[in-house]
């Protein structure tokens, strides 16, 4: 019976109390489905991803979609103004969202966004980093860990090479990026806890 949806993958955090749980869920699902499809399309364009077994493709996407979305949608978090843009384009302040029930996850999202934006990555670097986020051999349920690991290593090498080429005097950027991976895991875990608390099925 949650009354507010503080995830920016909604058009608004406010829920019409007249609506049934089912229709609220349907609307939420329709809101985030295009973003998930975009993540799948992105994954399909990663060289080597389609060569993995379908089971492992699904497992990686199930486990990593949230983390990919966090990286892709850092622009929704205005660090300076401390505001979050929802799908409708309307911005809500952190204070407003806190009063609606947003917890530590929101602050952690801002911290992550601030640190990632500070690295000033190009679109190509961001894209390759996102591929590294998705192709992680330590996700649960993988049937062919070696294949995923081999692809992961290829992608990490490519990212390192790109960062070295673009920032010859700032190789620390590569290390900082790799250190973002556990941060994303932590955000993913916090998000999962929120989802478990949120009974999505009416």
């Amino acid at each position: 019976n949650r009354m507010h949806l503080v995830c920016p993958m909604n058009t608004s955090p406010y829920v019409d109390p007249q609506k049934s749980g089912h229709s609220i869920w349907e609307e939420f699902s329709m809101s985030f489905t295009p973003a998930v499809r975009e993540v799948v399309e992105f994954a399909k364009r990663i060289p080597g991803f389609k060569d993995l077994s379908q089971h492992d493709q699904v497992s990686l996407l199930k486990a990593g979609t949230f983390e990919v979305l966090v990286v892709r949608f850092t622009s929704l978090f205005d660090v300076k103004e401390r505001k979050v843009t929802f799908l409708s384009g309307r911005k809500y302040s952190v204070d407003a969202l806190r009063s609606l029930g947003a917890g530590d996850l929101l602050n952690s999202m801002f911290d992550f966004t601030e640190k990632l934006q500070a690295l000033n990555l190009s679109e190509e670097e961001m894209s390759l980093f996102t591929a590294v986020v998705l192709v992680s051999a330590d996700r649960s349920g993988l049937e062919n860990v070696n294949s995923v690991e081999a692809l992961q290593e290829t992608l990490i090498r490519a990212l390192r090479s790109l960062i070295t080429k673009n920032h010859p005097n700032e190789i620390a950027i590569f290390t900082k990026l790799l250190l973002k991976l556990p941060d994303l895991r932590s955000l993913n875990n916090m998000h999962s806890e929120q989802l478990l608390a949120f009974k999505v099925h009416p």
Binding site: S29, Q54, Q57, L61, K62, A63, S192
Partner: peptide, 27 residues
């Protein structure tokens, strides 16, 4: 234990998108 990704229906969306929406085409 409840799987958040399954709760969201993520797996279904992912499978359909991976298959190139074959199910939708058949419909």
């Amino acid at each position: 234990f409840s799987d958040p990704a399954s709760n969201l229906g993520l797996e279904d969306i992912i499978r359909k998108a991976l298959m190139g929406n074959m199910e939708e085409k058949q419909e």
